[in-house]
Design a binder for these strands. Sequence first.
DNA 1: TGATATATTGAATTTTTATTCAATATATCA
DNA 2: TGATATATTGAATAAAAATTCAATATATCA
Lengths: 208, 208
Amino acid sequence: MARTKEQNEKMRVTRKEKIRNAALLQFVKQGLFATRIQDIAAEAGIAQGLLYHYYASKDEIFVDLINDALDKTIEASYSVRDMEIDPGEKIRFALERLIDTIENSRTFLDTCRLISQASNSTAIPQEARDLIQEKRNIPYQVIEIIMEAGQKEGTIIAGDPKMLSIFFWTSINGLAIYYSTNNNREVKLDYRVLSSMFLIEREREVEK
Amino acid sequence: MARTKEQNEKMRVTRKEKIRNAALLQFVKQGLFATRIQDIAAEAGIAQGLLYHYYASKDEIFVDLINDALDKTIEASYSVRDMEIDPGEKIRFALERLIDTIENSRTFLDTCRLISQASNSTAIPQEARDLIQEKRNIPYQVIEIIMEAGQKEGTIIAGDPKMLSIFFWTSINGLAIYYSTNNNREVKLDYRVLSSMFLIEREREVEK
DNA sequence: TGATATATTGAATTTTTATTCAATATATCA
DNA sequence: TGATATATTGAATAAAAATTCAATATATCA
């Protein structure tokens, strides 16, 4: 016998992870089509041929990464939904957390950028398009429901909750994309500017 | 003699315009790298070879388009700057106008999307990168100055005007990119949600 | 009408990139 | 240590795309 099954499996997983990271780096930097197999292999420090031992094609890696990225954003939105605080507080907290993440997490920016790239081209693999179709709206729906609850509670401004959710996510996305390409860190972002879009302020409550 | 100089020149300009439009359509749809010369030629209804009569390469078309797109956004920001109204009003008006444009102008969405794509890849032609480097910040600077003036005037909230300008443009950008890929028109956007991020509201003034 | 300059075509060629594959290396177990 | 299964390499091949170019079409003017 040669290596045991488990050992090989473990090697495979580690190596695959290395390829995934290399591919993510390159895709985010250059985009799916500008990235050559050679670029990924070089980034991962392996020969081109070996890549095909782990993935059947460049597209397959891309689909794998997109799926992961979408799942991450869905998870994040669920974790906000499931918090045991009031709806208005959820929006406030989520924005605070998201702004902080934009300022400090490279991984988060990469995730946003990958999804944005993918949503921006009809030339991506069909499978990736299906995944986006299926998963991309979930965070929008989650926020929409929280907005609606907040309106009932009286902490969120009036207006179509669908629209509020669109403003919520597109603002975050726009910021993430800006930060992912401008590594200007001189400006400190204050999440309260964003949250003032949605939250009814104390002053007004006091007025009543 | 054959055709006159002017006639040929006119034909060239018209044809070139046709190619530019076709290229813009394809770039926006697929991205620079996924778009093949063949795609542009087919979209313009001409043979591949003819394209090289007008442009030396795919990259050259891209640079031409990016330059145009950047100039358009700069022009738009200047037109706001030069209006004869108060700073707070400028911000309100610009947002109202931008939201309306997002909802109604395909061209504007294409422009945003092209710039976003270009800013998102290091693999675009050097010349395009230089143009972006040179021109992309101008609208940010214009809004920053207006925000600062509005703060002095007392109509714009406190906070680093650079930051306010970043929130301004990234929100608009995020929206434009969302709308450019989701042709869901069921939601009507209300610009006042965005403007409440920046403008001090009447109620508070009255309180003083 | 014929001469001619330029536009236009599409097949041939070149270049780039993806994919395959034969050869070699490596790690484990008997 | 040797047998063996799998990992790994990099050159060979295939596929796809960009670019060139010889041939042809077209519009104008003399």
